[in-house]
Design a protein around this nucleic acid. Sequence first.
DNA 1: ATTAGTATTATGTATAGACATAATAAGAGT
DNA 2: ACTCTTATTATGTCTATACATAATACTAAT
Lengths: 233, 233
Amino acid sequence: MTSVKLNNFQDIKSEVLGRITTRVWPPGELIPNEEDLAAEFGCSRATVNRALRELSDNGLLERKRKAGTRVVLNPVRKATLSISIIRHDIENRGCTYGYVLLQREHIIPPLVLSKTWGVPAKSKMLHLKALHLSNSVPYALENRWINTKHIPKALKIDFDVQNANEWLVQNAPFNNGDIAFSATNTDAKESEYLDVAQGAAVFVMDRKTWHDQAPITTVRVLFAPGYRMYTTI
Amino acid sequence: MTSVKLNNFQDIKSEVLGRITTRVWPPGELIPNEEDLAAEFGCSRATVNRALRELSDNGLLERKRKAGTRVVLNPVRKATLSISIIRHDIENRGCTYGYVLLQREHIIPPLVLSKTWGVPAKSKMLHLKALHLSNSVPYALENRWINTKHIPKALKIDFDVQNANEWLVQNAPFNNGDIAFSATNTDAKESEYLDVAQGAAVFVMDRKTWHDQAPITTVRVLFAPGYRMYTTI
DNA sequence: ATTAGTATTATGTATAGACATAATAAGAGT
DNA sequence: ACTCTTATTATGTCTATACATAATACTAAT
């Protein structure tokens, strides 16, 4: 019964969202097709298309050619989270960032790693351990492997002064990667570095990145207790 | 030098992505405007616009009217993660889902909660504790508060047989919410429910949802050790 | 010089029309 | 019945054009 003319896709998005949440169009229901909605809203089909496409991207609608658009039965809400550079996280909170390289070695990695990356078992990789500090307090402990076969330049960089994370971002672009988040109890060494009691629960991020098929780097970051990763739906 | 005609926005996206990653357009650089790119790629401006808009949504480009489009200096990669219903997570792995209600009470919540939600301090809320099982093994422990002022129906539901998560999804729609992920050591009770050693590190999700301004529910879920949340960049 | 007003520019979005494509339904042939 | 072909339908996308809007640069008036 909205005879109001909706002129932009944002308005249409929220109108449609409203009908979903107020169950005018309940879960599983087939909604009118784009042409009909365009007629109802007094706009073009392209505008309706964009609104519905974005809602579909957000996981609220399911769209299939010929079959039409229906409200998702079990809305799998999609949240986007920004994986930023640790220094930015810290500085955005008004704290001063600090960085310490704990360890650097060019060695043959554990078999698990060369296996999962599909690189020869005997080829060396660059292994770095570093600590990120916020106001001189341990913030995150980073354990990184760099594929020097693909990024030989990395061997010449002095990671004592240059943060590996930031150097890689600038010098070793990647186009795909995967991330896993989990929790773990710190072992003796980790708790020492992070200055917490052994066994303290810490938030963990494991990330692997590739450029096309070539592995770039894999990193495991343990965030000091109290760390929270936020997002909105 | 690509004299190949790119006819769809996907091709243009990957071409532009390629130029970013191979540093033809290095971080911080201003790239040609949409019209010029359209001419180069032999397509219309609308097509270029969509490609660039999506790359901007992914956090790779920064676009400003009049100023133009430039490659982001510190690419804050954006990962989208799907917050699904726990039962789906379990069933998707081919396991059988189980659910046990541990506790149900209609009580005045802790002051912190009524404060952050802006509800009267003396008004009761529905408090539920439940355990999600995968193949009869504890998978996640859920601690939930439901705003019965806004969802009075919830008081009449038998959450012994009906999973609160799923009932709410179907009956109490929300249009915004926020989520935080963290890690914590289990206390005595939690470790008992999850059948793990006390102090075990567990992955935690805290979620609050609203419908417009009205708070719907807040839930804290502790996932049994070993849980990992995945996403890709 | 400072301010107010105007022009310029690149992105943001809408529109009408066209064709492509996936999924389904209907019909024809064996 | 069964398979193959042919419509039909709704979404997916492209095009050309138009105007809106934010941010900047330029210009005239005080």
